[in-house]
Amino acid sequence: MTDLNTLKARGIIAQKQEGYFALRFLSNAGYFTAEEMMNLTEVARKYGNGELGLTSRLTLEIPYIKAEQLEEVLAFCEEKNLKIGGGGTSVRAILTCKGTVCKHGLADTNRITRAMDKQFFGRLLPGKFKISVLGCPNSYGKAQGNDLAFLAVREVKLDEEACIHCKKCVKVCPDGAFEIGESTLALRDEKCSRCGKCMPVCPVDALRSDNIEFLVFLGGRLGRKARLATPCKCKIQAEEINAVTEKVLAFYSEHAGSKERFAEVIERIGLETVEQAIFG
């Protein structure tokens, strides 16, 4: 049998129970079709213990596959076009949120993630590399825990001349970003998370936005040696995401040691140096 590390890289993960494996199945930006779910259920019932487990990266694992049945299971999965993978020193399954359908979503996260998945998933690197694409500031915490993350924000501007000082925006703002005077209202950029929740409640369209941008987070990592990433100074457009990702992966490949995470590279080299290399 192929060695366990090679199997793990293929999404075939040895359990602590000797002679058993868990298979990791890849979703399409967090979604499985109804037909795929029926076929996955058949795998779990016929070859596993009847259970299907969800992972934090929107994949699905079926445990208790016997070693002697692996070839038969893999043949069934190939026949049904079920994709297995997401391990080893490579780009892991790209994480996203429900921004495409969520009322708070500022971007079509499914479309962006699926395009990225085709270009980057499984690319071999010095260590594992986790990427996420997130649709609004509600997912700020998720962005901070990935090697590379893109988070959509709305550029909000207040037309103070048009404002009638009804203060409806003040009531819905989760950041306390509005400063109230006796007859004035001001928007403080340094407090604004750019979620855009204030815009729909303004009765005179004094709050405007012409642009959806993406914050870029570098070098986040969870686990024993956690490092929470903060946004880079530079914001980018949706069409720049893949190009920036290519630059980040190239930098990481050039500077990382074996199994060294991107967070460690940044701590060793310095965030300012890394940002300069990527954004110029």
Score class of each variant (00 low, 15 high):
Cys173Leu: 04
Pro231His: 04
Lys142Ser: 14
Val170Leu: 09
Asp117Gln: 14
Cys173Pro: 07
Glu213Leu: 14
Lys225Gln: 12
Phe251His: 15
Lys128Arg: 15
Cys192Phe: 09
Ser209Pro: 05
Ser183Tyr: 11
Ala162Thr: 13
Cys234Tyr: 11
Thr245Asn: 06
Lys157Asp: 13
Ala162Phe: 01
Cys234Trp: 11
Asn138Trp: 00
Val201Gly: 03
Gly141Tyr: 09
Asn211Arg: 14
Phe251Lys: 13
Phe121Lys: 04
Thr184His: 03
Cys169Gln: 01
Lys225Thr: 13
Asn242Gly: 12
Arg194Glu: 12
Ile241Cys: 12
Lys118Leu: 12
Cys166Asn: 05
Arg114Pro: 05
Asn211Thr: 12
Ala229His: 03
Glu239Met: 08
Gln119Cys: 09
Ala243His: 11
Pro231Asn: 07
Cys232Met: 11
Phe120Asn: 06
Leu151Lys: 02
Glu213Thr: 06
Lys191Gln: 10
Glu155Asp: 15
Ala206Asp: 00
Phe217Leu: 10
Gly196Ala: 02
Phe120Val: 02
Ile236Asn: 09
Phe178Ala: 07
Gly176Phe: 02
Phe217Ile: 04
Glu182Gly: 12
Cys195Leu: 02
Asp117Asn: 13
Ile212Ser: 01
Lys157Val: 15
Ser132Thr: 11
Ile212His: 00
Gln144Val: 04
Ile212Ala: 05
Leu185Val: 13
Pro137Phe: 04
Lys233Tyr: 08
Phe120Ser: 02
Arg154Asp: 08
Arg123Glu: 10
Gly181Met: 01
Asp175Thr: 06
Gly196Tyr: 03
Lys128Gln: 14
Lys128Ile: 11
Leu207Cys: 07
Met116Gln: 14
Val216Met: 10
Asn211Pro: 00
Phe214Pro: 02
Leu215Glu: 14
Thr113Trp: 10
Phe217His: 05
Ala115Phe: 00
Ala162Asn: 05
Ala143Phe: 01
Pro203His: 00
Phe178Asp: 05
Val216Arg: 08
Thr230Asp: 11
Ile212Lys: 05
Ala152Tyr: 02
Val216Thr: 14
Lys191Glu: 10
Val133Asn: 04
Ile241Thr: 11
Cys136His: 02
Val248Arg: 07
Met116Thr: 06
Val216Gly: 11
Gly196His: 00
Thr245Gly: 04
Ala243Asn: 11
Leu158Trp: 02
Thr245Met: 06
Arg227Gly: 04
Ala149Ile: 03
Leu134Gly: 00
Ala229Phe: 02
Leu185Met: 07
Lys157Gly: 07
Pro137Cys: 01
Pro200Cys: 03
Asp147Arg: 03
Cys169Asp: 00
Phe129Thr: 06
Phe251Leu: 15
Ala250Gln: 14
Ala152Arg: 00
Lys157Glu: 15
